[in-house]
Amino acid sequence: MAVSTFPRHPSALSVRARALRPAERLCHATGLLLVLSGLAHLVVFAVDGGPWYGPVSWRKPVTFGLSFGVTLIALTWVTSYLRVGERLRTALLAVFAADCVVEVGGITLQAWRGVPSHLNMETPFDTAVSMTLAVGGGVLVVLLTGFAVVSFRRRPTGPAGMALALRSGFAILLVALASGAAMIARGVVLTRTGHQQAAYHSTAPLKPLHGVSLHAVLVLPALAWLLSRTSLSEPVRLRIVTAGVAVYSAAVVGAGIRAALTY
């Protein structure tokens, strides 16, 4: 009788063996709505036109809707492999989902108003929106860092390569969080010193690094999961995941070098 060699954790396995819990269904539905919002604003851009880049464009509700929606769905899935209490995981996912809605909602609102969403202190309302987005970003950093710490403190469950994929994905995600924090910090300093336009453009060098590193926590675990559906042996699957981590890490390093040279 064959026995699986990867570590098992009852709560994580039960997440995948049973129907989704209400909180998970809610997170998936919320993520899907955010994705649809991003796609809808892509249609708005096609109809309305205007610049794709810059502090005021339809690009922001498109990219943020898609990115936050995919990230929420991905995080709901990958955290099922973490060794964390189900109630705590549910609570953290609920906060994360709410924060995603606030972030995308604020960005979308400002796009429809025709004003920048981030680093905008022109009016009291714009300041309130900008600060809300900044605080929401801080909440995201805390939550995602917490999940990353859990992944390293206790080995995640799953098929061959999943533990490596998750830990690598969360480690690379921390790069995305750090680059995002750096963009906000630099922009706030420039705004506070009276260089508003410079603040809007100061984030450009770090955007590729931020974007590339943001979705490793989805791509790498997805690779491990897809390989688990094949007939490849566990050692082979682990080697492929290791190679995938190396390639993704190289892409992040490349984006980091580019950011350093242009920052």
Score class of each variant (00 low, 15 high):
A2I: 15
F6S: 14
F6Q: 15
P7H: 08
R8T: 14
H9E: 01
S11K: 11
A12G: 04
V15Y: 12
V15W: 11
R16S: 13
A19N: 14
L20D: 13
P22T: 01
L26Y: 11
C27V: 15
C27W: 09
A29Y: 04
G31D: 04
L32N: 02
L32D: 03
L33K: 00
L34N: 04
L36T: 08
S37Y: 10
A40Q: 05
H41W: 10
L42N: 02
V43G: 10
A46H: 07
A46D: 08
V47S: 10
G49W: 02
V56E: 04
S57A: 10
S57N: 02
R59K: 13
R59F: 15
K60F: 03
K60C: 02
P61I: 07
F64C: 05
F64R: 01
G65V: 05
L66M: 09
S67D: 11
S67I: 03
F68V: 12
T71M: 14
I73H: 04
I73G: 01
A74L: 12
A74F: 06
L75V: 15
W77E: 06
V78P: 04
V78C: 04
S80K: 03
L82F: 00
R83D: 04
R83V: 02
G85C: 05
L88S: 12
L88M: 13
A91Q: 11
L92H: 05
A94N: 07
V95C: 06
V95Y: 02
A98Q: 11
D99G: 05
C100H: 06
V102P: 02
E103M: 14
L109T: 11
Q110L: 06
H118R: 08
N120P: 03
N120W: 01
M121V: 13
P124N: 05
A128Q: 15
S130P: 08
G138S: 07
V139S: 11
V139I: 12
V141R: 02
V142G: 11
L144P: 03
G146N: 09
G146D: 07
V149S: 07
V150C: 09
S151P: 06
F152R: 09
R153N: 00
P159H: 10
G161I: 00
M162W: 03
L166V: 06
I172L: 15
L173S: 14
A176P: 09
A176L: 13
A178L: 15
G180Q: 06
M183I: 02
I184V: 14
R186N: 12
G187E: 08
V188P: 04
V189I: 13
L190C: 03
L190D: 02
T193Y: 07
G194N: 12
A199G: 03
A204T: 12
A204L: 13
A204S: 10
A204H: 08
K207S: 10
P208V: 05
S213Y: 03
L214R: 10
V217E: 01
V217M: 06
V217Y: 03
L218V: 06
V219R: 07
A222N: 11
L223P: 07
L227Q: 01
R229H: 12
R229P: 11
L232R: 00
S233W: 06
E234I: 13
P235N: 08
P235R: 08
L238I: 11
G244V: 12
V245A: 04
V247H: 09
V247M: 10
V247N: 05
A250T: 13
G254W: 00
A255R: 01
G256C: 05
G256V: 01
A260K: 08
L261Q: 13
L261A: 15
T262N: 14
Y263N: 12
